[in-house]
């Protein structure tokens, strides 16, 4: 990937992320977060993670942000313009964030991680055909021989071959979450309204 494109996408992700943190109006924040997630999805695509990039857009920028916008409009929240800022949390937030960035910068640039580029760790699709083991299904090997990365097929194989139980647990979690939401949003009898 051209370095310029990476910096542009990183700027979109971080710039809109900054707008989420500093924005006064919740609707602006929610839309900025959606834009930030689209930039992040593009970064995922640049890392050859096509499936993750697509579900980042579908789940986060689509479903989650629409839910946020629904709740913001349902609750009819006014922008907090006339409220005074209290400085202590803001200053501590900035200090903690700066310290964390400095630490992560030191760790991420000092070790051998900086030497790993897409050029010196290229994907070896043709060589991978013989080493797939149980994943050597015709649909996967044909894609690899054709020179395309069967990203979704390989994730699906990993999920259902190695993490089938975890997948069912997550399904149960979603079910419990759905029931929890219904119970939580039910109005109590004889409540205020």
């Amino acid at each position: 990937m051209p370095p310029l494109l990476f910096y542009l996408l990183a700027l979109i992700t971080l710039g809109f992320g900054f707008m989420v943190v500093t924005g006064r109006n919740p609707v602006t924040c929610a839309l900025s977060l959606a834009a930030s997630f689209v930039g992040l999805a593009a970064l995922f695509l640049s890392l050859d993670a096509y499936f993750i990039g697509i579900i980042q857009i579908l789940v986060y920028a689509g479903a989650v942000m629409v839910l946020f916008l629904f709740i913001i409009m349902l609750l009819d929240i006014k922008a907090e313009e006339h409220k005074k800022l209290n400085l202590a949390p803001i200053i501590s937030g900035i200090v903690v964030a700066v310290l964390l960035v400095v630490q992560i910068f030191a760790v991420a640039t000092s070790t051998g991680l900086a030497g790993k580029t897409a050029q010196n760790t290229p994907l070896e699709l043709a060589e991978a055909v013989g080493k797939l083991g149980k994943a050597a299904l015709p649909t996967i090997t044909n894609d690899l021989k054709a020179g395309t990365l069967p990203d979704v097929k390989l994730i699906g194989f990993t999920l259902f071959e190695q993490y089938g139980f975890h997948l069912q647990v997550v399904g149960l979690l979603l079910l419990v979450g759905t029931i929890g939401v219904v119970v939580l949003s039910k109005r109590e009898k004889g409540g205020a309204q």
Binding site: L14, G17, V20, G93, A97, A108
Partner: peptide, 10 residues
């Protein structure tokens, strides 16, 4: 890391 720090500050 920068994105995480932004979120933490928020």
């Amino acid at each position: 890391g920068m994105l995480f720090a932004l979120g933490l500050a928020g």
